[in-house]
Design a binder for these strands. Structure first.
Length: 449
RNA sequence: GACCCGUUCGUCUAGCGGUUAGGACUCCGCCCUUUCACGGCGGCAACACGGGUUCGAGUCCCGUACGGGUCGCCA
């Protein structure tokens, strides 16, 4: 049953790149709005002139676009409540501030303007964390000085405007949520402690607060807080590494949300249809890059060949399409293509130690392999059928099973025991090159023969 | 330090008073494959701890421990 006029928003500040936690928050807001035929708004909270960068702004917009998160209102998409950059909304904030001045909810302190917090208990029910109750005038009157390692007295009335006239997060965030008619606020749990302040502002401004839902955070694999340095913390990394946005989006959704059954590979539409608060978790999740890669591999394998090639070619400089196609069932990310391609394309690909010893376990001397090379060299046509024939003839001659020859053939022709499907691989390498490579590697393997 | 949130296999999770505690990633074994990969089958592996409540507790309550968050003229 659709809720009435659901409006959600993602409100990042352009101070760094878009990290996975933010991307997930955006995704959840987007999914929730779609689930209820609502509107998803992107609002850029660029009130901190010192820290904002246009690169960070671009990273947010590009990152969300790449992930497939579409906003119905926001940068580049006009709506009834714009502009959607807070730096362009000063008049609105000034007007709202005058309202608070009239009702004596604010006062000046050393050029800054402080909001008078209520003396009473502020209660609200978080859709994920449950009932909350806090008295700002008491709780906010003490702060922790981490350098001194002790508590210090502080003014619970928080500042909403700097002496230079610029406004601060709590105030602009609430004003915009009111003005943009936001109905549900889904954000990181790091904001749970801010919510009482926000509710106080909503009420001071005569507005009904929206529903709040604070989602648990994403941690590193070792449980530490995910920071900018960590690989995979920024969304751009996934695009660079050759992840598919659908897979990343799917993985992100699974962090803190679940369909409550055993499904894991779900389309955006499937997730949308199931997305609701009671499917959201309460505990922090650690980011598991291995599983994200696995999921990406699943998505890559499911791609139609045409589309796979289209996406893969930029990652495989100059390689023939036939060779690229062989990698599809093997890669988890597109950047892995080259390590599968190298044994096919590189005549000098060095034999791996492990592969080498596997051959020597099966072959006492060079005779069988030389004979195989001979048979291959005599093949009238270079195709799968003829290659198999050459293998079978050699096997018969030496009284061994054809299967026994596969690994030595693979290693001498490509240099590695783990590679792409052998017959098509040999076809791509070509007869002359295959034979030449085998001769050279056999000589290396059995130097005395 | 105060306040808040959390705690099921190593990781992501299902579970919502009675289950042989299920699935997935990783790892290992087997099968399939005349090779490799995919895939299939199987295995290892969890209810943080202590008290209650109850005929019965992973599930409810309290405490402890641990993890996370907040305490800015950042957002």
């Amino acid at each position: 049953m659709p809720l009435d006029k659901v409006r959600t928003r993602f409100a990042p500040s352009p101070t760094g790149y878009l990290h996975v936690g933010g991307a997930r928050t955006a995704l959840f807001n987007y999914l929730f709005a779609r689930r209820h035929q609502g509107t998803f708004v992107l609002r850029i909270e660029d009130t901190d002139k010192v820290r904002n960068t246009s690169e960070a702004n671009d990273a947010i917009i590009e990152g969300m676009s790449w992930l497939g998160i579409k906003w119905q209102e926001g940068p580049g998409v006009d709506g009834p409540y714009g502009p959607y950059f807070q730096s362009q909304r000063t008049e609105i904030y000034t007007h709202k501030l005058s309202l608070l001045e009239k009702s004596d909810r604010v006062y000046e302190d050393q050029g800054a303007i402080r909001f008078r917090v209520p003396q009473s208990e502020i209660s609200f029910v978080d859709r994920i964390c449950g009932p909350q109750s806090i008295n700002l005038s008491q709780q906010g009157s003490r702060a922790w000085d981490s350098e001194e390692g002790k508590e210090v007295e502080t003014n619970p009335d928080f500042i909403i405007r700097r002496p230079d006239g610029s406004f601060l997060f709590h105030f602009v965030n609430v004003v915009d949520d009111i003005e943009m008619k936001i109905s549900h606020v889904l954000r990181g749990e790091d904001h749970l402690s801010n919510t009482a302040r926000h509710i106080a502002l909503f009420e001071a401004l005569g507005a009904t607060p929206p529903s709040f839902a604070h989602i648990p955070l994403i941690l590193n694999n070792d449980g530490s807080k995910m920071s900018k340095r960590d690989a995979g913390a920024g969304l751009q990394w996934y695009e660079d590494e050759g992840f598919l946005p659908e897979a990343v989006s799917n993985y992100l959704a699974l962090l803190g949300w679940s369909p409550k059954d055993d499904r894991e590979i779900l389309s955006a539409d499937e997730i949308t249809n199931l997305f609701d608060f009671n499917h959201l978790n309460r505990s922090n999740a650690r980011f598991d890059l291995e599983k994200c890669r696995w999921l990406n591999g699943q998505y890559i394998a499911a791609l139609p060949t045409e589309q796979f090639l289209h996406l893969a070619i930029p990652f495989a400089a100059g390689a023939p399409e036939s060779a690229i196609a062989l990698t599809q069932p093997r890669i988890q990310t597109f950047t892995e293509i080259n390590q599968w391609l190298a044994p096919i394309l590189d005549d000098e690909f060095p034999m791996e130690r492990a592969s080498l010893s596997k051959v020597l376990e099966k072959q006492k001397d060079a005779s069988t392999l030389l004979s195989l090379t001979e048979h291959l060299g005599q093949a009238p046509n270079w195709n799968e059928e003829q290659i198999k024939l050459a293998i079978n003839q050699t096997a018969e001659k030496f009284g061994v099973k054809p299967g026994k020859l596969m690994l030595p053939l693979r290693v001498t022709a490509t240099g590695t025991a783990q590679g792409t499907d052998l017959m098509p691989t040999l076809e791509i390498i070509g007869k002359e090159t295959t034979v030449a490579r085998m001769r050279r590697r056999i000589a290396t393997l059995f130097p005395t023969d």
